[in-house]
Design a protein around this nucleic acid. Structure first.
Ligand SMILES: [Zn+2]
Ligand SMILES: [Zn+2]
Ligand SMILES: [Zn+2]
Ligand SMILES: [Zn+2]
Lengths: 149, 149
DNA sequence: CTTGATATGTTATAATATCACCTTTAGCAA
DNA sequence: TTGCTAAAGGTGATATTATAACATATCAAG
């Protein structure tokens, strides 16, 4: 589980951007200024942000002002596994383990709004139903360790 | 798992409506014509339907024509566990086991669009992260047994 | 009946997401 | 360098999903 524990967040951001750079370089993808900035914005907070919330920040920085700007960057980042979409919130969160193929599961604190990423294996459930599993959405709402106290 | 297997669907609908009636009677809730009809519409198909798709049917039957009509009925039905919301689809599906408290997990066929309901226990995942679990969203996309063939 | 609570009708609007079309830029080959 | 091509971005319009606000109607209890 990655997200609720205290950590060196500057390094956390730096490493994640470096990983994104490496991943894009290797795959022949372009981490353009808008895309990079959207990723950074999401990394700076460990929480889910709506497309329009991100767009406001981009607008303030002169990086774009219309919805497609944000949605295109988010499409790129989600397609390549750098960002995940939280369906329950219609929002987006930076991936905690970019590069590694994974079926993410999210723990969403309703009080502090932080989001942690972990994994949940649903293959046995799908197999039991004879279902050919292609993608999963796993989102848990509740209270994070800090907010429970 | 309930939903993909062939079954006596007329009885399936009848039983579910009867269960809803009983549940409402017992809890002092009113299963009004619009609410009952929305539940029936969802039961008639074992698939998720958007609020506006349901609204069109209501409109054709003279049961309401504005969005709040559909959303209010769906709010009532979801609040009382007769219908579940599928976050991934912004859509709704009739509950397969109304009355019983449960954390539903859905298997959504991308080809025939049918939806089956089962359960997935995420308590261990949450506990492992020190997270106090209050609600879950579990949605699997793929191919149902019939569409795999 | 009266009354208070619940449900519905209706208009408007908010919030989220995509389309369509054109311009710019980056990468590449001649 | 130059011209070509594909990808990315700028922008206005629009589609889709959801809720707010307020008036009216219905119901169940006293
Ligand atoms: Zn961090
Ligand atoms: Zn991830
Ligand atoms: Zn059935
Ligand atoms: Zn259910």
């Amino acid at each position: 589980m990655i997200g609720f524990d205290p950590h060196d967040h500057s390094a956390c951001i730096r490493d994640a951007v470096a990983a994104a750079d490496a991943l894009c370089m290797h795959a022949g993808l372009r981490l353009t200024p808008v895309r990079r900035r959207v990723l950074e914005i999401l990394l700076e907070r460990h929480r889910a942000m709506g497309a329009y919330e991100i767009l406001e920040l981009l607008r303030a920085e002169g990086l774009g002002s219309q919805p497609p700007v944000a949605y295109r960057a988010l499409d790129f980042l989600t397609t390549h596994g750098l960002v995940h979409r939280i369906e329950r919130l219609n929002a987006f969160v930076a991936c905690a383990t970019p590069g590694a193929a994974h079926d993410p599961a999210f723990l969403i604190c309703r009080k502090c709004e932080s989001v942690a990423e972990t994994e949940a294996d649903l293959a046995p459930v799908a197999a039991g139903a004879g279902f050919e599993l292609e993608a999963t959405v796993v989102e848990m709402q509740g209270l994070c360790p800090r907010c429970r106290e």
